[in-house]
Design a binder for these strands. Structure first.
Length: 899
RNA sequence: GGGAGUUUAGCUCAGCUGGUUUAGAGCAUCUGCCUUACAAGCAGAGGGUCAGUGGUUCGAAUCCACUAACUCCCACCA
């Protein structure tokens, strides 16, 4: 068949993906083989593929494909995540565009919209993964809100509630005013911000009874103006003064002693509040006076509790000011901040304004809205128990982290664990299975937790005073659960291990083999899966965790839409082919390091595919004949067989350490340098000649073996060539081909051949320097004990007709070179440039003299000879001997040339 | 404020418990080649006082200390 000189991936890739699907090659079911399971980190159901997904899924595919080829029953389970906040936000936006407000819809109506959005977009990202070549078992595709997963989530909620690990409590929580939901502490990310520190005047309300006046060392009165005495409070959030219910000083603060026991007036608001004392206050910060707003700051809330202060909640859920604020009602908090500063200044209540760097919390999902601390009644999961069970498996090495440095991060978090706020004020998600009983407003709330309204009713009837309650009187909690409360069950719920504990699948596939994920979700997801695994299966969810880095652009910036530096993965695939893009990702992706993605790497991948393609073209172009195998071919086969074994073993080692980019580089070099540049050149028949059957058979075997080693990285082209290398049965695939068993490589033979390569390179160099055409064959000589095992190969590759031993009485103008201690001599007739030769020899002499000198320094050092290991000393002696002999040869040559 | 990590050729990185010819790879660069598989190629070449300082040692890119720069994570100083 005629093959184009350039490989074109597009057709090939879709053809083979379809073939794999048609033959059910991705599907797994339990059998006698050892399982190899990976569960996909479920992408957002309405998301689209970005470079991070590309990296992550390429790695998973490589691992899964390799597992299949090493006798394992590999199962890669795909699925998507309902991503409650993100998806709900998208649906709300879409509705807004149609002029529909979420508040105008019933829960059911809203969910209908959300589901249709999900059905419309939910498949996109999984379709995109197919383009990449992902060998997921699509029959198992799951969704965190499908029936099995939803049931699992609710069961777990009920179970944990019954175990007393889930509780409902009034806490200071993080509120996202845009999404209008509470967030967990992990979902708040803090950003440095340039802001202002406002120094506000709080006039003393009871000046008449001020016994101690504020003075400086000279006795001058301070903090006094026409309106009286005042304290100064430094704050970054002047808009919260309407919620102030006290001012706090440190009891030991000398400069604020005069305020003890007094009252001050909140500026503008004119509410009189007490001055309280607490050691919490930092005397050095600002003026040492702290305004206390218990409703809107965690620390203030705690102060409020200890000092029994009132709590005034001045914000509405959407971040506007509430009636309780008394001022600026209905305006947004950020607007109010600007306005109140103007108003305060106008009233002469601002002493000064300073620049200030502080950290502001933002919602992880919604990074343009600052999170507001808010006092709320929410559902929490007690985490201490889970921290206790999740720490040992990682510390004891039952779960291995790659890279291991994340063990410290993990440990740190678990040792300072906080309870997990699991309720969200969202509709898109798993609705909390809690039912409230009818109670009056001033009574404490009463509720039951149960899987169904019927069960809830049964539970409710047991409560004193509610014996006659009816099902209509129960009202189910409107809130839903944090998305991670379903993802943390993923490795279990995918195999239905919650609803049907101990079923065949969960027993076979769990624990999974490896989790491939980004380090930024180590707390959100990785840690919590370990918790749920230990809780429900008494076993770890995975044996290994491979943390990928963040994909950045080539100058190290994060990829983002606004920077426009994030390439569209699908466009890259169109341009270079999926194999090339996979290679591009993997060529620079050591575990845990960020990867600096450069399109040039895809080009490198494409070039490599082209290289393989052309090697294939060459091999297929040969005519095969029954004839004796030449000595060169026999030696080449023997050598390459050993080389292949050595690299194969090396790759095994690299995979066991998850050093995938190195494994790829090693096999890349094996194919390009050893196989194409050396082996094929050595066995290549002369133009128009045929190849002997034996060599050809070996070559096909090698090619097959190489394709298998390459397949996990570049599945498409390897399948294409493997299918065409020889006749295959219908349904057969390289995907299922096993990696051959290899023997231990003969290292002596391999290093002998490396010497041969060096000889050839030297000859090529001299040809280049002296302009001797490759076509002109040469006779060469060697001095000393040269092994002649590979002489025939030198002859073939370097076009040498005879290699002979040098006789001392010969006198031929020549160019010489040294390989190890053997000197090689190439007669070059009148092309000799004596001066150049002398210069070269002198440079060599200088180098070896210096080298010998450093060796002798060691050997003359008694301490070295006495203390170093014998083999090290022996090595140095060998260096000495070699260098001495080289110098001898070089000096002789120098003499000859100088004559 | 606490913790972790990084710093090796122009770029991205190897170099595991110190000693394998005074540091390796890929890419990029330079030189010469359109040699009948591949110019997405072939044959060559150059390029590094291993961040700095000090220490341990017969011997340090490798171990220790300090310094500097960068990165990340955690933390309720308004």
């Amino acid at each position: 068949m005629e093959l184009a000189a350039k490989y074109t991936p597009a057709e090939v890739e879709s053809k083979w993906y379809q073939y794999w699907i048609n033959n059910g090659l991705f599907h797994s079911q339990p059998d006698h083989r050892e399982p190899y399971t990976i569960v996909i980190p479920p992408p957002n159901v309405t998301g689209i593929l970005h470079m991070g997904h590309m990296l992550n899924n390429t790695i998973q595919d490589i691992l899964v494909r390799r597992a299949r080829m090493t006798g394992k029953n590999a199962c890669w389970v795909p699925g998507t995540d309902h991503a409650s906040i993100a998806t709900e936000a998208k649906v709300v936006n879409k509705l807004a565009q149609q002029g529909i407000k979420k508040r105008d819809l019933t829960r059911e109506q809203f969910l209908e919209h959300a589901w249709s959005w999900t059905h419309e977009h939910g498949d996109i990202i999984l379709q995109q993964l197919r383009k990449l070549g992902a060998s997921c078992d699509w029959d198992r595709t799951a969704f965190t809100m499908d029936e099995v997963r939803s049931e699992s989530v609710l069961k777990v909620f009920v179970d944990l509630y019954k175990k007393g690990l889930i509780y409902r409590g009034l806490r200071m929580v993080n509120w996202d005013p845009k999404a209008q939901t509470v967030l967990s502490t992990e979902e708040v990310i803090y950003r440095d911000e340039k802001s202002k520190l406002y120094y506000l005047k709080y006039y003393v309300a009871d000046t008449d009874t001020l016994p101690v006046k504020p003075t400086n060392e000279e006795g001058e009165i301070l903090h006094k103006d026409a309106k009286g005495y005042y304290a100064v409070v430094a704050t970054t959030r002047p808009e919260t003064i309407m919620g102030d219910t006290a001012m706090c000083i440190n009891p030991k603060d000398p400069k604020n002693q005069w305020l003890r026991g007094h009252k001050v007036t909140v500026p503008l608001v004119n509410r009189v509040i007490p001055v309280i004392e607490d050691r919490y206050v930092d005397m050095e910060f600002g003026t040492g006076c702290l305004k206390v707003t218990p409703a809107h700051d965690v620390n203030d809330y705690n102060l409020g509790k200890t000092h029994h202060l009132d709590t005034i909640d001045i914000f509405n859920p959407d971040g506007t000011l509430s009636e309780a604020a008394g001022l600026y009602i209905g305006q947004d908090r950020m607007e109010v901040r600007k306005q109140i500063v103007i108003d305060l200044s106008a009233a002469g209540l601002v002493e000064k304004i300073e620049d200030y760097d502080n950290k502001v919390g933002y919602s992880e999902r919604n990074q343009d809205t600052a999170v507001e601390p808010r006092l709320c009644r929410q559902w929490f999961l007690s985490m201490q128990h889970f921290a206790n069970i999740a720490l040992p498996p990682v510390l004891e090495g039952k779960i291995k982290f790659y890279p291991a440095k994340y063990i410290t991060t993990y440990k740190n978090w678990l040792e300072n664990i906080q309870d997990w706020c699991i309720s969200r004020q969202l509709w898109w998600g798993h609705r909390i299975p809690a039912y409230f009983l009818p109670t009056a407003e001033d009574e404490e709330e009463q509720f039951v937790v149960a899987l169904s309204p019927e069960e809830a009713l049964e539970e409710a009837k047991k409560i004193k005073g509610f014996e006659n309650i009816t099902i209509d009187q129960l009202s189910r909690d409107e809130d839903s659960l944090d998305t991670w409360f379903s993802s943390w069950l993923w490795p279990i719920s995918l195999f239905n291990g919650i609803n049907d504990p101990g079923n065949g699948e969960i027993k076979y596939y769990y624990p999974t083999s490896v989790l491939v994920t980004a380090p930024d979700i180590i707390f959100f997801w990785v840690a919590r899966m370990i918790m749920s695994g230990e809780e429900y299966l008494k076993d770890v969810p995975f044996g290994n965790v491979y943390f990928t880095g963040i994909v950045r652009d080539k100058i190290g910036r994060k990829m983002s839409k606004s920077l426009g530096n994030s390439p569209d993965p699908l466009e890259l695939i169109d341009k270079y082919g999926a194999d090339a893009v996979r290679m591009g990702m993997m060529l620079s992706a050591p575990a845990g390091n960020d990867i600096l993605f450069d399109e040039a790497l895809c080009e490198q991948g494409r070039n490599f595919n082209n290289k393989i393609w052309n090697a294939f073209r060459l091999v297929k172009s040969w005519n095969v004949e029954d004839k004796p195998q030449p000595d060169t071919a026999q030696k080449a086969v023997e050598w390459f067989d050993n080389m292949l074994c050595r690299v194969h073993n090396e790759i095994d080692g690299l995979f066991s350490k998850y050093r995938l980019s190195e494994a790829l580089m090693v096999v890349y070099k094996l194919f390009w340098d050893e196989f194409s540049a050396w082996y094929l050149e050595m066995i290549k028949p002369a133009f128009g000649q045929s190849i002997d059957r034996q060599t050809y058979r070996h070559t096909l075997q090698f090619f097959d073996h190489l394709l298998r080693l390459l397949h996990p990285f570049i599945p498409f082209i390897t399948e294409e060539l493997w299918q065409n290398l020889q006749q295959r049965e219908e349904g057969e695939s390289i995907m299922q081909a096993q990696l051959p068993q290899v023997h231990t490589a003969d290292t002596a033979l391999l290093s002998q051949f490396e010497i041969t390569k060096e000889v050839i390179t030297n000859i090529r160099n001299i040809r280049l320097q002296k302009n001797i055409p490759a076509k002109q064959s040469l006779d060469i000589f060697h001095k000393g004990n040269a092994d002649n095992y590979y002489d025939s190969l030198i002859g073939k590759i370097a076009n040498i007709s005879h290699i002979q031993a040098w006789k001392d009485d010969m006198n031929i103008p020549s160019a010489n070179f040294l390989v190890n201690t053997t000197e090689w001599i190439i007669p070059i007739g009148n092309m000799i440039d004596k001066e150049a030769e002398i210069k070269k020899i002198e440079a060599d002499i200088q180098y070896y003299e210096k080298f010998l000198n450093s060796v002798m320094n060691k050997l003359n050092n008694e301490k070295f000879v006495n203390n170093a290991k014998p083999e090290v000393v022996a090595l140095e002696r060998k260096k000495q001997a070699d260098a001495t002999s080289k110098l001898e040869t070089l000096r002789e040559n120098l003499k000859r040339f100088s004559e």
